[in-house]
Computed example of a mutant assay.
Amino acid sequence: MTQQVTTPPSPRTEPAQNFGTEGIAAMQRPSLITRALMAVVSRVERLNLRFSKVGNPPVYDKATFPWVAGIEEQWHLIRSELDKVMVRQSELPTFQDISTDVKSISQDTGWKTFFLAGYGLTSDRNIAQCPQTWRVLQTIPGLKTAMFSIFEPGKHLAPHRGPYNGVLRLHLGLIVPGPRDKLAIRVSDQVCHWEEGQALIFDDAYEHEAWNHTDKTRVVLFVDFVKPLRFPANLINWLLLNIAVFTPFIREGADNHKEWEKRFYAEAEALRNRPN
């Protein structure tokens, strides 16, 4: 899901969050309820900036969140479960297969996902494949979304911003090929590089883009968690995030994932039952 931003932040001042992405069409939905909700979101985003407990930088010092160290310590367990998932890499869905709004920034097959949870919805069958990963994820305060994000060789994700600044994003490097200068993510005016076993935390409400110009696949554990806010923003944020599950953006994605899941696990069952 994407919204539009207008101008890049000035490096001489504190970066500013804008509320759209230049060159990307705004999401259009026929529902009056959805349009009303998006108008509310625009107002609440300004409140979230004002009442943040952790400031509003594009990229955070991971020491800001003490629980991150425990995630990094167990990255090998997550990587071992990822390796089993990657055996069927070619059958995994693209992001736009699940969330059609992503077509505004990605139309090819270079960005794939293995979804675990999002906004109160879970993929029980995918979680069953990754029990240690799921256990580790439960230590993240305010966990909202979790998946493996798979960036294939040659993929460049266009500049965009996330739909809402009430969450922050964590990337845990799991498969990070070299050379370093060909694989990166830009958040506002900062270019960051993933490292295996290391977490990167950023605010995806700033314009960002990512690229993999290596000849190998990059994979991170992709997590959104609730941004720490003071009252009253924390209460309003909680309400919006819990209402989100009823919006077309989330419901459509859930339906698309269920259809993919049926096909994926039906094929796995057929392979197991095939006579020798």
Rank of each mutant, 00 (worst) to 15 (best):
H257L: 13
L32F: 14
R180P: 03
I127G: 04
N242R: 09
I78E: 05
E152I: 04
R180D: 09
R46H: 14
L116P: 08
I150E: 09
P11F: 06
I250T: 09
Q28R: 08
V54E: 04
P66Y: 06
A16T: 15
L200F: 11
W67A: 06
N273Y: 01
L221N: 05
V223C: 04
G120P: 02
E22F: 08
G70P: 08
S149Y: 00
V41G: 03
F65S: 00
L49A: 15
L200Q: 00
L116N: 02
P8C: 01
S42F: 12
E261G: 05
T34V: 13
V54W: 03
E81F: 04
P179C: 00
T247Y: 03
H156M: 01
P153N: 05
G142Q: 09
P141Y: 06
L82F: 04
R274V: 07
G110Y: 00
A244M: 12
A210V: 00
E207F: 00
A146P: 06
P8K: 07
A254F: 14
M86W: 08
C130F: 00
L47R: 05
G173F: 05
R35D: 10
K155N: 11
W194F: 07
P93K: 12
Y164T: 01
F19K: 11
D204P: 06
G142F: 06
T64L: 11
R218M: 01
A69E: 14
